[in-house]
């Protein structure tokens, strides 16, 4: 257990050391403040709206699939550690587990999660008659 305490200490010290380069510039860097200094960076154009708006759902699906697969892979670590002790029976279990995992992959694939369509973000705006055409 002591070894894992060491990992925790390293993380804490890493956080503490990380504060230094973030504070140091505050002491020596200039503090200019103009009208546009703290504007959102958008190549000089005024920002339209906030970035915190509705967003494509496509990314969420990847996160969900990831969680499912990652947990399954974590189950495989203890199996991998003792596989040799179980000989061919162990191989058969791993094969069964991987077969079910592959079925999940096929299922998600057939659901179309990995087909990236631009239409998933929002329906296209309704067509409006342009004043010139009328």
């Amino acid at each position: 257990m002591g070894e894992y305490g060491e990992v925790g200490r390293t993380l804490l010290l890493g956080l503490l050391i990380g504060v230094v380069p973030l504070v140091l510039p505050l002491l020596i860097s200039p503090r200019y403040k103009g009208a546009e200094t703290s504007k959102t960076y958008e190549c000089g154009i005024d920002t339209v709206g906030s970035a915190w708006s509705r967003f494509g759902l496509g990314y969420t699906l990847f996160a969900l699939v990831f969680v499912a697969f990652e947990v399954d892979l974590l189950y495989l670590f203890p199996v991998a550690l003792v596989l040799r002790a179980h000989h061919w029976a162990g191989v058969a279990w791993v094969a069964l587990f991987l077969a079910i995992l592959s079925l999940a992959l096929v299922f998600v694939w057939r659901k179309g999660v990995f087909t990236w369509t631009l239409g998933t973000v929002a329906p296209p705006p309704p067509k409006m008659d342009s004043p010139r055409a009328s």
Binding site: P25, I28, K39
Partner: peptide, 10 residues
């Protein structure tokens, strides 16, 4: 290190 740290307002 000598550069100003700019925190955007939004």
């Amino acid at each position: 290190i000598s550069k100003q740290l700019i925190t955007p307002s939004h």
